[in-house]
Nucleic acid binder design. Structure first.
Length: 151
DNA sequence: GCCAACGTTGGC
DNA sequence: GCCAACGTTGGC
């Protein structure tokens, strides 16, 4: 099993939306590296849910992969802001997965705390200039985040 | 709102 | 293939 972290702007799609929807498709990833990570996701993989552009920035909950990668339909939708005119129906460029809400943490593990924790210094999240919206997390890092969340 | 750090685009 | 210009992300 693998572990991941996905970022979402809190005012666009938050853990509360996720809780309400229970299952959501993770659309709109338009970065090749992030896409490649999406395609590696397997059913049952654990996904940390991270709020960016938020009053409280950090990991707010846990989700799980329930459907493995399939073409992101928004790339073919001219009305979508994720529309990609270069992508071909028979050879899609962009993919998405379905993830299921598991839990909202009792407390947020903030970016500040993550930066201060020497066990987490190798996390992609805190490495220089990293803007990936989907990234892998090591098992020990995942366990440490869960511990910090008091779960 | 600012801006650093990228990634992408397109002319050459 | 290079690189300037532009767009986006995301912390602050």
């Amino acid at each position: 099993m693998k572990y991941w972290l996905v970022k979402s702007e809190a005012d666009v799609y938050s853990i509360y939306d996720m809780e309400k929807d229970e299952i959501t498709f993770w659309d709109g990833v338009r970065n090749y590296q992030a896409r490649n990570f999406l395609r590696e996701m397997k059913i049952g993989d654990k996904v940390l849910f991270y709020h960016s552009n938020s009053d409280v920035i950090g990991v707010v909950g846990l989700c799980e992969v329930v459907k493995e990668s399939y073409p992101d339909f928004t790339q073919f939708d001219k009305k979508s802001k994720y529309y990609d005119p270069k992508s071909k129906l028979d050879n899609p460029t962009w993919f998405m997965v379905d993830i299921k809400f598991v839990k909202k943490f009792k407390r947020t593990v903030t970016l500040e705390e993550i930066k201060k924790n020497s066990k987490l210094k190798n996390m992609k999240l805190v490495q220089k200039g990293n803007r990936l919206s989907v990234m892998p997390v090591m098992k020990d890092e995942f366990d440490e985040i869960i511990k910090m969340a008091g779960e």
